[in-house]
Amino acid sequence: MPLTMHTLSVPAFTRGFSALSGLLDKAEAFASESGLPLSELFDARLAPDMLPLSGQVQRASDTSKNAIARLTTLEVPRFPDDERNFDDLRQRIGKTVAFFETVKPEDLEGSESREVTLSFPNFKMTFSGEDYLLKFVLPNFYFHVTTAYAILRHKGVPIGKSDFIVGLG
């Protein structure tokens, strides 16, 4: 089976969100067992200028679903960044994964050559769809999932590599 833009994106995003959901479950159990307020995990960050755990989940969601929007003509759901607790984060993950379940392989056919331009305050970047997915989206998505893992690990949640690499079997 040849690699396609669909096989490189949707399953990777879905698996990443499965791992992220598992991390949230373990974090919630840890907080309950240790008496740590969930807000200390929800608002935790690795550095003062980095997004907290909640922001990492939000950016993973936005990065992945907006990539599909830029690579297809599909209408992508928009979610306000108004999550206030772990249940809200789980709902956002669920809505994001539910969207991915609607994306068909044919929706991404030909998107490897589609031009994608991103505008930043001081510059623009233009990619082929393939380069956009492989060199920008996937690294960005995994950055946010990994940072969420690192925040929880830093706060003492007993998680390990196997919690991050779920679903590969």
Rank of each mutant, 00 (worst) to 15 (best):
E101Y: 11
V97D: 04
D25W: 05
I165P: 08
D131C: 07
L20H: 02
R90S: 00
V103G: 11
S21C: 07
P80L: 06
M125E: 15
E112M: 01
V116A: 05
I159D: 03
L108T: 06
S54P: 03
R84E: 02
L138W: 05
T72A: 14
G94V: 10
F17I: 01
E33Y: 02
R78V: 10
L71I: 10
L53C: 09
R153I: 04
F17L: 02
F164L: 12
L20T: 00
D82S: 04
F99S: 02
G167Y: 12
F86T: 00
E106D: 11
G22T: 01
T146E: 09
S162D: 13
R45G: 06
S9A: 15
L118A: 05
D62V: 01
T126Q: 08
F164T: 02
F143M: 11
R15T: 10
D49M: 08
K95W: 13
S61M: 04
F79H: 01
M5T: 01
F127A: 07
A47T: 03
L53K: 05
L152G: 03
T4V: 07
K95Q: 12
S128M: 03
G129H: 00
L168P: 03
L118K: 09
S162P: 07
V10S: 04
L51E: 04
G160N: 12
I151S: 03
P2I: 07
E115Y: 08
L138C: 07
K124M: 12
L134G: 02
D62M: 07
G110D: 05
A60Q: 07
Y142D: 10
A150S: 15
P37N: 06
L38W: 04
A150D: 11
V145T: 01
E112W: 06
I159A: 06
P37R: 07
D131K: 15
H144I: 05
E28H: 02
Q91Y: 10
S113Q: 14
A69D: 13
P80S: 14
L71T: 01
T14Y: 05
V103P: 11
G22D: 01
E106T: 15
T117P: 02
A19G: 07
G167M: 13
Y132Q: 01
D25P: 01
G169L: 13
V157Q: 04
E33L: 13
A12W: 06
A60P: 08
S61V: 04
D25A: 07
F141M: 08
F141K: 03
K161W: 09
M1H: 13
E106L: 08
S39V: 15
A29K: 11
L36R: 10
V57Y: 00
